[in-house]
């Protein structure tokens, strides 16, 4: 089972779109995929029309299970989607209380990792949609993943947010004596806008060797797909946005071509 976390401490950079699109493509390729919504805002859950507040189980149950955590608790919390092999572990508003109630307990950053070890035979890929804040939820996602995908909107403020994310990773690496494998993915790129081109150049200059060589373009079909509560690869498989994500996925599975 391969685990990717999609994270950035800035909101609105395309984390959920990246999670849903990559997950949808993988599922259409016949992979068993689990999308985990760790953002209390529950954008990923709502994307699929799931209102966690109406459900009896969510990812919150996983976090509060403690020693009782087992495979059933994880599997019982899953929701199905339009694609047979695509499942989601929905979020809940209650997640927002975790930092206050459990954020100081030792080992709380390793709960998702343990949960995934219980279901490693059930899925080929797990994609975690992270909240845009540093806290117990993001730490869990980063600690549990094999690779971190960092979407960055090609605009000035997003680059500032990326600095914080990179700094967080640096501290975690130092704390854990482990290098985290990550890739920066430029998103929402509009070549007609000078500011986007400038931001993209800055991104490439400042993070050489870490930025994916492609870009995810702005594409209104992403919004249309979310309104239809369907993964973009299913809703509009031939759009340029989906094509870009397919290219990204292909490289994630084989060899990544970075900006040099």
């Amino acid at each position: 089972m391969i685990v990717w976390a999609i994270a950035n401490q800035k909101g609105g950079v395309g984390k959920t779109t990246t999670t849903v699109t990559l997950g949808g493509i993988l599922a259409q390729q016949g992979k068993r995929v689990l999308l985990v919504d760790t953002d209390p805002q529950a954008s990923l859950s709502y994307y699929f029309g799931v209102d966690a507040e109406q459900l009896s189980h969510s990812v919150h149950d996983v976090f509060i299970a403690g020693d009782e955590l087992d495979k059933d608790i994880v599997l019982d919390s899953l929701c199905s989607t339009k694609l047979d092999s695509l499942f989601i572990l929905p979020s809940s508003m209650a997640l927002a209380t975790l930092d206050r109630t459990m954020g100081t307990r030792p080992g709380m950053g390793l709960i998702l990792k343990k949960a995934f070890s219980k279901i490693e035979d059930e899925f080929d890929y797990v994609l975690i949609d992270c909240p845009p804040v540093l806290g117990v939820l993001m730490v869990n996602a980063v600690a549990a993943c094999d690779k971190l995908i960092v979407p960055v909107q090609t605009e000035f403020l997003a680059l500032k947010g990326l600095q914080r994310m990179m700094h967080t990773l640096k501290i975690m690496s130092r704390s854990q004596k482990r290098d985290f494998d990550y890739i920066i993915v430029p998103t929402m790129y509009d070549k007609r806008v000078n500011a986007a081109s400038d931001a993209y150049k800055d991104l490439c200059n400042n993070y050489k060797g870490r930025v994916w060589s492609g870009v995810i373009p702005v594409d209104t079909r992403f919004r249309d797909a979310s309104q239809a509560q369907s993964p973009p690869s299913l809703f509009s498989p031939k759009t340029r946005g989906v094509f870009a994500y397919k290219n990204l996925l292909s490289q994630l599975k084989n060899k990544i071509d970075y900006v040099k």
Binding site: G103, G107, G109, I171, M172, S175
Partner: peptide, 17 residues
Amino acid sequence: EDVVEDYLTSLLTEDAL
């Protein structure tokens, strides 16, 4: 930074478990 590092280290250390 040291506060953040202590916080992250605590979250990712299981000594007490």
